[in-house]
Amino acid sequence: MTDAVEDGTASPALLCATSTSGRFCETSTTPSRTAAARPATLRTILVADDLEAALAGAVTALSEHSAQAAYAALRGRIPWLGPSFFTKFLYFAGKTVPPANDPEPLVLDRVLARRMRSLASQVGRETGHDPDGSIARRVWRDQDWSPHRYQVYLSFLHAAAHQAASTDGWPSDASLDLLEYALFNTAWMYASPSGHLPA
C-alpha cells in the first residue's frame, strides 16, 4: 500500500478504505445493530460523490500546510466519515506525505478523547481550575472535535513523547505513534506533581 501511495497508483479512496476497514469490519461476539450496519456504512462512505476530491484535498492540505488543515478539510465533508475514521486516513497518508508544518497526524477517536478527558479532569481537579471536570467533559467530548482541538491533541502528544523520551522509562528513539498506541490500549494513570497517583 505504501508503495502504491508513493508512486501515485493508489487512490485516496483506496487508502481510506484500507485505513478504516478494520474498524468497520470488526466482528463482535454479541451481534448488534451497529456492528451489522458497519459494512453498509463503509459502502455509503466509499460511494460518496465527492469522496476522491475530499480526500485528495486533505492530502494537499497536509502536504502544503498542516495536519490541522487536513483535518479541517475533511471535517463534515463526507456523511458518516467522522474524525474517528478520517484521522486514521490522515495518519496513514502522513506516513508518505509529511505535513509542511506542525506535527504529523495521529488518530483521534472516542477512546483517545476519553483518555485525554480523564487526564484533563485530573489536572483540573489538582489545580482547582476545573474542580468538577465540566470543562474537560466539554473540551474532550466523545465526537466532532474541532480542528483546533485536534491540533491541541497533536501538540500535547508530541510534547509528552519528547518529555517521556528524556526519561529512563521510555525509549528515546520511539516513534510518536507508540505513545498514541499506549494511550489507546492502556488504562491511563496520571501521577501528580507530588508523585502520588490519584485516589
Rank of each mutant, 00 (worst) to 15 (best):
G94L: 05
A113H: 14
W145T: 03
E64V: 03
R117L: 11
S63L: 06
N101M: 05
V111G: 02
P103C: 03
A72K: 01
L108S: 13
A70Y: 01
D130R: 11
T96D: 06
A120N: 00
L90A: 06
R110E: 07
L106A: 07
Y71N: 10
S66A: 12
S118P: 03
G128W: 07
E52I: 05
L119E: 09
Q68H: 00
R115I: 08
E126I: 08
H129A: 06
G82A: 12
A72D: 02
R77K: 15
R110G: 08
W80T: 14
F85S: 07
A70D: 01
G133Q: 14
S146C: 12
S134F: 09
R137E: 08
E64S: 15
K95F: 03
V152L: 15
A73G: 04
R141I: 13
L55R: 11
G76I: 04
A67E: 00
A100G: 02
L112Y: 13
G76V: 10
R110P: 01
R110L: 03
S66N: 08
P131G: 00
E104F: 04
K88E: 12
D49K: 14
G128R: 04
W80R: 15
A61F: 01
Y150E: 02
G128F: 03
A53H: 06
H129T: 08
L55A: 14
Q122F: 11
L112Q: 10
Q68S: 04
R125T: 13
L112W: 14
A73T: 01
P131T: 00
A100N: 04
T60E: 14
N101E: 10
A72G: 05
W140Y: 10
S84W: 05
G76C: 08
